[in-house]
């Protein structure tokens, strides 16, 4: 009898505590970081869409499991229901999830295309070439002549400064092993693959500093391969570039 109670309680605890954890998670900061990019909203919408559907089926199946185990483990000397299945039910629980899953798959496509397909990339030259190496990020800007790969290219460690509300395209490289350029707040993640130059784009919608995290194991120092993406206003961006430029040309006179 106690085994029965215990088991049923355990099985009941799974959906109850499971849902409770997710509901209260945000209070502890155990929830998604705030999104600040154009496709952040879409990604979050899709996340919540799937979360809703998943929660429904999670609660449904776990509650059924709890109820059946509780209800049908009662001492009963009669035989169980003798059935080998039901064609109708099988059809139902194949067709309904199938429809939902197709729907979900369908919903993803436009966002995915917006994030990655070449048609949605902004026109023109990239803002920067981003270099990943063990265990540093370097950002290379075109300098005064507006061209990459020339002597006056500007370079900054750690911090990637981009203007707000503008599509920013950059080209991602790796000098050694696989790294991953990931800015959780932008819902952006792209591996830096040695031997490939991978174009990436995003558009940040809020001024601020956002963590740039390496998300692909790149060796012993993977955990400390940090960076920052600083989103600034158009003027601040210009000022920053001018500052980089003057720093580039500095001759050590002012310290």
């Amino acid at each position: 009898m106690l085994t029965r109670l215990f088991t049923a309680l355990l099985l009941l605890a799974v959906p109850v505590l499971g849902v409770y954890t997710f509901v209260t998670a945000a209070d502890h900061g155990w929830w998604m970081q705030p999104e600040v990019s154009t496709f952040g909203q879409d990604v979050d919408f899709l996340f919540y869409l799937i979360l809703g559907m998943v929660t429904f089926f999670f609660v449904l199946t776990e509650m059924l499991l709890f109820w059946f185990v509780w209800r049908y483990s009662k001492k009963d000397s009669s035989k169980a229901v003798y059935t080998h299945g039901s064609h109708k039910l099988e059809m139902l629980w194949t067709a309904v999830p199938a429809g939902l899953l197709v729907l979900i798959a369908f919903f993803q496509m436009s966002t995915w295309a917006e994030m990655r397909f070449k048609g949605s990339f902004p026109e023109g030259e990239p803002f920067a070439h981003v270099w990943a190496s063990q265990f540093d990020w370097r950002f290379q800007y075109p300098g005064a002549d507006g061209e990459f790969g020339t002597m006056d290219d500007l370079e900054s460690p750690y911090e990637f400064v981009v203007p707000v509300n503008q599509p920013v395209k950059f080209v991602l490289h790796s000098r050694d092993v696989i790294h991953s350029f990931s800015v959780p707040a932008f819902r952006l993640k792209q591996d830096a693959m040695p031997g490939l130059a991978i174009p990436v784009w995003f558009q940040a919608e809020e001024i601020g500093e956002y963590d740039l995290v390496c998300m692909e194991l790149c060796g012993w120092g993977h955990y400390k391969m940090a960076g920052k993406v600083r989103v600034v206003s158009e003027e601040d961006y210009r000022a920053y570039m001018a500052g980089l430029q003057s720093e580039f040309m500095n001759t050590g006179m002012e310290g």
Partner: peptide, 16 residues
């Protein structure tokens, strides 16, 4: 010496 030569050369541009 390092101009257009620091590891990405022309290829990044052909990709873009």
């Amino acid at each position: 010496l390092g101009e257009k030569e620091d590891g990405f050369g022309l290829d990044a541009f052909s990709v873009v």
